[in-house]
């Protein structure tokens, strides 16, 4: 295969795992460096900006909590698009993408829940309430765990791909429920203050570190996701090579 044919010219070229691996090798160092840079700036802003007059120092928890919560939903959306890729276009990398995103999504959802608790205790006076927002995010966390368990339970990726894709799409109904839960129901969790049609309602002093941290978390997500996809492609290659070797060994013993 000549070096030239590995170039990615259109989106469908990504369907070739070898091309994807070549692209991943090229962009991962840059993506990781960019994420580190944004994290450095974000963390610096998080601890140098002023505290809130009501929340005090605890406002700094928001700079981790809000990006984690955004990512928990974005990751599931990436998985839902991948599930469509599996079912509609039969894109060979779609299942790899959905499968490798699940543990990352679960981690960020866990972070959103835990940091939310650490904010809730001093500010609301409770670690947890079963209001619509908290409950729906907890359900999202359970869905991630369920999908990870499903992927592990089925050895053959060709079989698990369609099942988990259907399950991911069914579970996607939870994402708008999470987003709009604070408007549809009377929740202890506050309504949206950044992603609003009429613009953010929080002070630039808090918005700046929040947005920088959000970019940092998003870059981290894509770095991890691409690296995890690369791992999954390698894993599948190892499996198929071992199968190939076993077949070969069988043939040799049969024909002396």
């Amino acid at each position: 295969m000549s070096e030239n044919s590995l170039a990615i010219r259109k989106f469908s070229d990504l369907a070739n795992p070898t091309r994807f691996l070549a692209l991943a090798d090229r962009i991962l160092p840059w993506l990781a460096a960019l994420a580190a840079l944004f994290f450095a700036a974000g963390l610096w802003l998080s601890f140098t900006t002023e505290g809130d007059y009501q929340q005090g120092e605890t406002v700094r928890i928001m700079y981790v909590h809000v990006p984690s919560a955004w990512l928990s939903m974005m990751c599931y959306t990436v998985m839902a698009i991948s599930a469509l890729g599996t079912l509609v276009w039969r894109h060979p990398l779609a299942d790899v993408s959905a499968k490798s995103a699940a543990p990352i999504g679960a981690s960020f959802t866990f972070l959103a829940l835990v940091t939310g608790s650490f904010w809730g205790k001093p500010m609301w006076g409770t670690w947890w309430v079963w209001d619509a927002r908290l409950t729906s995010v907890f359900v999202l966390f359970l869905m991630y765990l369920g999908l990870i368990a499903l992927n592990r339970a089925m050895e053959d990726p060709a079989r698990s791909a369609r099942v988990s894709a259907v399950l991911i799409l069914v579970g996607f109904v939870n994402i708008p429920i999470i987003k709009f839960s604070v408007e549809w129901w009377n929740t202890l969790h506050q309504p949206a203050s950044v992603m609003r049609l009429d613009g953010p309602t929080i002070d630039p002093e808090f918005l700046r570190p929040l947005l920088v941290m959000a970019v940092a978390f998003t870059l981290l997500f894509f770095t991890l996701h691409i690296a995890a996809m690369r791992n999954e492609i390698w894993r599948r290659r190892v499996t198929s090579l071992r199968r190939q070797a076993a077949r070969h060994a069988g043939r040799e013993t049969l024909a002396p």
Binding site: G56, E57, T58, R60, I61, V64, H65, S68, P103, I104, S107, F110, L111, V114, T115, F118, W119, K121, P122, L220, L224
Partner: peptide, 20 residues
């Protein structure tokens, strides 16, 4: 309040480090 802030960042750091 500082303890809650430190705990949050510590959990975040450990989770991200484990993931990486």
């Amino acid at each position: 309040h500082a303890a809650y802030v430190i705990a949050s960042y510590a959990v975040a750091a450990v989770t991200v480090a484990a993931l990486v």
